[in-house]
Write a protein that binds this DNA or RNA. Structure first.
Ligand SMILES: [Zn+2]
Ligand SMILES: [Zn+2]
Ligand SMILES: [Zn+2]
Ligand SMILES: [Zn+2]
Lengths: 158, 158
DNA sequence: CAGAAAATGATATATTATAACATTTCATCA
DNA sequence: TGATGAAATGTTATAATATATCATTTTCTG
């Protein structure tokens, strides 16, 4: 069993760093501006492996001394999600940083209801099953939402 | 190709009728009260093959002359979703009547972004792919959300 | 540097959802 | 049958999530 969730006590600073580096690259290649605000929001999202709500981000920015209003946060989130740097978790109204923003994918999200952590899978079995089901009913896919709630391995066994 | 979506111009009254009959049965077998309010909300949801928001239901009830507040609607929705008579579509914040409330299932929802119709599939390929993926990462499933947005066959071809 | 485009600031408001307590309805059984 | 407790609904207030609109600032381009 390969655990999709990060090990407890892993070097999380490296996650943040590498996510930032990837984000820079993506923005660069898309000629998109990775502004201060966008970087801040992106970094805040990566401060945990949980999904973060817009208002949690707002509070965090406020705590940092910024005077920020909701539209500012939502604009940053819109930018980040459109570039694929961040995904929206529909069933949580919350946002989650993407591991692999450099390649197109249909992601699936495992959400632990105990510890709150989220893990993104890019599982071809699931994607293919969805695509095949769509094809079989003549449906043209534009976007998919696959969110799986339950207990991560750590929480199930401890 | 079997179309999951109902034919245009089908006898929709029959859908509503049969849904009501099924709902009665389910409530009966669960010793749950299918009260006036719950029946009204359920019927309103079945007035279309689209997903309906809580406030659309509120407006519809108001139009019918009832003086109804949000908690009333949300309570009815909670009751109906807990019994499996209605499903919540997370990506729309809206509710959709279930075809087969009598059997446990992991449903998948096709949502047409053109005509707004929703169709529920109970596709074992998809369910199994999700279960298998969860098992492979040691994840214990509690609930799944699978929502597929795109064009239904009618809308794609016309 | 001027002018246009993009991003952010600021204010207001829309939409979705729940908390808390009062009242009514309904099943149960003394 | 009618007292009684549980379930359902009514009522009021407010929380949580999200967007519209216009003003200002920043950045890009020529
Ligand atoms: Zn980490
Ligand atoms: Zn967990
Ligand atoms: Zn119908
Ligand atoms: Zn359609």
């Amino acid at each position: 069993m390969s655990d999709l969730f990060p090990k407890k006590g892993h070097d999380h600073d490296r996650c943040v760093h590498s996510a930032l580096a990837q984000a820079e690259k993506v923005c660069d290649s898309e000629n998109a501006r990775f502004t201060d605000m966008r970087r801040k929001v992106f970094t805040l999202i990566w401060q945990s492996h949980k999904a973060v709500t817009a208002y949690e981000l707002l509070d965090a920015l406020t705590a940092e001394g910024q005077r920020v209003q909701p539209p500012t946060v939502y604009r940053a989130l819109e930018f980040l999600t459109e570039l694929g740097l961040v995904h929206r978790i529909e069933s949580l109204n919350a946002y989650f940083g993407c591991d692999r923003p450099d390649c197109e994918h249909l992601g699936q999200y495992f959400i632990c209801t105990d510890c709150g952590r989220v893990a993104e899978a890019v599982n071809e079995d699931m994607s293919n099953a969805v695509r095949k089901a769509a094809r079989s009913v003549g449906f043209t896919i534009q976007a998919t939402t696959v969110e799986i709630k339950g207990l991560c391995h750590d929480c199930a066994t401890h």
